Amino acid sequence: MFALMEVSRIQHPAGSPFLPAAIFLLGCGLAILGSVFVVVDAMYFRRTGRRFQGTSSAFRLLCPSISGGLSVGMGKVIYSVASSLDGYNTDTQGNFSWAVPDEAVVAALTADLASVSTYLYGRRMYETMAIWETDPAAATWSPESAHFADTWKRAKKVVFSSSLEQTWTERTRLERAFTAEAVARAKSEAPGDLTVEGPTLARSALLLGVVDVVELLLCPVIVGGGTAVFPNGLSLDLRLVRERRFDNGMVQITYDVVRP
Score class of each variant (00 low, 15 high):
D135F: 01
F148Y: 15
L208E: 11
M74D: 09
E215T: 08
G209D: 11
S115C: 12
L240G: 10
A3V: 12
V159E: 02
G75A: 06
F59Q: 03
R244I: 07
L234Q: 05
K76E: 10
Y255L: 06
A107S: 13
D212K: 01
F178R: 02
G15F: 00
A137T: 15
L61F: 11
P191K: 02
R176D: 05
A184N: 12
L62D: 03
P64V: 06
V196Q: 00
R239P: 00
F59K: 05
L109K: 12
T92I: 09
T55K: 11
A146R: 11
D135R: 00
W132V: 08
F37M: 06
L174F: 05
T92N: 09
E127Y: 03
M5R: 09
Q252I: 11
L174P: 01
A22K: 07
T92H: 05
A42N: 09
V100A: 13
S97M: 12
H147G: 06
T254C: 07
A202Y: 06
A14H: 02
S16W: 01
V210N: 02
M1V: 08
P231V: 07
M5Y: 14
Q93N: 15
T169E: 02
V221Y: 02
L201M: 08
T200S: 08
K153L: 01
V72W: 02
T179N: 14
G224T: 13
S16E: 01
I32S: 08
M129T: 12
M43L: 15
C219E: 07
Y119P: 04
L208F: 10
R124W: 11
E103T: 12
I253H: 02
D237S: 13
R50D: 13
F52A: 09
G122T: 05
V7M: 00
L234S: 15
E103G: 05
A108D: 05
S235Y: 09
L120S: 01
D91M: 13
A228D: 04
L33Y: 07
C63T: 10
I10W: 02
G69F: 12
V116G: 03
E165R: 15
A202E: 00
R244W: 09
A3L: 10
A190Q: 00
S161C: 00
S57D: 09
V229Q: 07
L30M: 14
Y88Q: 14
Y126D: 03
V38F: 13
S204A: 14
E103D: 15
G73P: 02
G224D: 08
W168F: 15
V40G: 07
F96K: 02
I222N: 11
Y126N: 11
M129A: 12
T55S: 12
W132S: 03
S204Q: 14
P260M: 08
I253W: 05
F148K: 00
A182R: 07
F59E: 01
F148Q: 04
L25A: 13
G87L: 05
L217H: 08
